[in-house]
């Protein structure tokens, strides 16, 4: 972590009469949650390294409304959505990248009808694009040959059919990817979606994140790779709950790439 992060805002770009290539939508978890902030920074370090002209909305960003909508509060959701769309359209944003599959899903699928039309990419998709265009190089580095399992986020996988982008990045990192029995379209939820993150679980035999972590542990990984800040929290808690935090790390793929490069 040598250099300071360069994180320009849309307001700054506009003041200079310029337009960035892409808007980085940080999201609430990425902005405020201690664990997720590390993912945000790792992703920014990659963007800085690849010299991508990006900007954030900063204090002009607000919750996409995903948890409100999934909790059943359509009114609050649309208030949030239309407020955000007003800001985004005001800056004439065309392309958005985000490290949160929930933000990704909401902006990509639910904003267009409300007047927000953008090209929206999940960070794993965006990083693949950079690789393809030769603007970013990823090599195994310290992850080469490590046993790693990948937990599919529901809102990237089943909800949007993207199973390959994160796996391609893991392939680039030359890890030994061990799939869990329930993976890709059969992947098991971490338990956070549908606003569950913000409430107590209903009574049952077990918490969902424990069920999923147990499955991940069965693959005997040194790292559980994630691609969603909420899954990350759930799986990290799960690993702690199973007293495995000494052996198993939970890492976002962006963190892995940034670490492989010692960024």
């Amino acid at each position: 972590m040598s250099e300071a992060l360069k994180v320009p805002t849309m307001a700054q770009y506009t003041a200079e009469g310029k337009q960035p290539e892409v808007l980085f939508w940080v999201g609430c978890a990425g902005s405020f949650d201690d664990r997720a902030k590390k993912i945000t920074k790792a992703f920014v370090r990659i963007l800085n390294k690849a010299k991508i002209e990006f900007a954030v909305l900063g204090t002009e960003e607000s919750c996409t409304g995903d948890p409100a909508k999934r909790a059943g509060n359509e009114f609050l959701f649309q208030m949030q959505a239309m407020g955000n769309i007003e800001v985004l359209n005001g800056y004439q944003v065309k392309k958005i990248v985000t490290a949160c599959p929930h933000c990704f899903n909401t902006i990509k699928n639910e904003y267009p009808e409300l007047g927000g039309n953008y090209e929206v990419l999940h960070h794993t998709q965006f990083l693949n694009l950079l690789l393809k265009e030769g603007r970013l190089k990823v090599e195994g580095g310290k992850f080469k040959g490590k046993r790693i399992t990948f937990h599919d986020p529901c809102y990237l996988g089943r909800a949007n059919g993207e199973y390959e982008a994160p796996r391609k990045l893991l392939e680039k990192l030359e890890v030994e990817l061990i799939e869990m029995k329930r993976c890709k379209s059969n992947g098991l939820c971490c338990g956070a979606g549908g606003a569950q993150m913000f409430k107590e679980p209903e009574a049952g035999k077990k918490d969902i994140n424990i069920e999923r972590t147990e499955e991940a542990i069965k693959t005997q990984p040194s790292i559980i790779a994630a691609a969603c800040p909420f899954c990350n929290t759930m799986m990290t808690d799960g690993v702690k709950g199973k007293n495995k935090e000494g052996d198993i790390q939970v890492m976002d793929i962006a963190e892995m790439i940034a670490n492989a490069e010692d960024l």
């Binding site: 089943r158 059969n186 939820c189 979606g193 209903e202």
Partner: peptide, 8 residues
């Protein structure tokens, strides 16, 4: 309230 909207 137990649903995670996971679409499974």
């Amino acid at each position: 309230w137990a649903c995670t909207t996971c679409n499974a």
